[in-house]
């Protein structure tokens, strides 16, 4: 959650500072062999902000932004496809009992397969590794979107459907005025989960089958023993995931003013 008042704001920074301190302490003073190779915070920050980075990646290098752009492009493409397919499918599953009966079983079987397990098959299936990575990213986002939309539709009180019928609604009105707005809070929860899931399966996919991207950058740095670059990549992934989730949350709040009102009333 973004900071709301002054106290929360300072606690947030205190949290960051404590984490950095713990990290520094672990690398500088902890007499454990495992931590000796770990770059300290200062080392990472100087590399990150250096105009002439030792390992070629910093805020001032072109490559850094190319990796970010590739990752953003893949995450966004996968996410948009997941929304375009998952939301209608979830609505349809929630609406039609017959359709759900046969789709639910299939979903139950496919959903637990970890995204990484799809990578080899995706590489075989798709003409380029680019589409394979996007496909794997899409898949997790798609399941999260579909399932949450479905749950959202099912959670709509039956009285709303009856009221809509009494007031003379045709099916298209029910869809537009009852199902979509009624499921929207759940849909947006699903979109946030989908965005988060998209970023982590994206990084995994990029490590295995890509030429550019933050996941690729991290894995390449690992191969070349460029430890500060690994941490830069991880931190960038964290920021990117946070920013895209926050953007979705903000959009959700704007679209669902009524929901804020009812939550405020309950609390």
């Amino acid at each position: 959650m973004p900071p709301v008042n002054k106290k929360q704001f300072w606690y947030m920074w205190l949290g960051y500072a404590l984490a950095l301190a713990a990290w520094y302490a672990a690398t500088a003073w902890l007499p454990v062999a495992a931590f000796e190779r770990l770059p300290g915070p200062w080392e990472v920050i100087t590399e990150w902000f250096s105009t002439d980075p030792a390992y070629g990646i910093s805020l001032f290098t072109r490559d850094y932004y190319i990796h970010i752009l590739y990752s953003f492009y893949r995450a966004t493409a996968a996410f948009l496809m997941a929304v375009a397919l998952g939301v209608p499918l979830g609505i349809f599953m929630g609406w039609s009992k017959t359709f759900n009966d046969f789709a639910a079983a299939l979903f139950g079987l496919l959903r637990p397969i970890p995204p990484l397990a799809w990578v080899p098959l995706a590489i075989l299936l798709f003409p380029s590794s680019e589409s394979a990575v996007i496909y794997v990213t899409f898949l997790v986002a798609f399941f999260a979107t579909t399932m949450n939309t479905y749950v959202g539709v099912r959670s709509i009180d039956n009285d709303y459907f009856r009221a809509a019928a009494c007031l003379g609604s045709k099916p298209r009105h029910v869809l537009r005025h009852v199902i979509v707005p009624g499921a929207l809070p759940h849909i947006f929860t699903g979109l946030q989960i989908a965005m988060g899931a998209a970023w982590f399966s994206l990084a995994a996919g990029e490590m295995i089958a890509a030429q550019y991207g933050l996941g690729y950058m991290i894995f390449e740095a690992y191969n070349l023993i460029q430890f500060p670059t690994i941490v830069i990549g991880m931190a960038t992934l964290g920021i990117a995931g946070y920013v895209s989730s926050a953007a979705i949350r903000l959009l959700g709040v704007r679209l669902m003013r009524w929901h804020e009102q009812s939550l405020g009333m309950e609390g």
């Binding site: 009285d159 007031l167 009852v178 707005p181």
Partner: peptide, 17 residues
């Protein structure tokens, strides 16, 4: 169901959105 016989529900069914 039709708009010539409208129900007012026990738990209320105004569209909250």
């Amino acid at each position: 169901p039709g708009s010539d016989r409208v129900v007012v529900f026990q738990n209320g069914a105004l569209f909250p959105w």
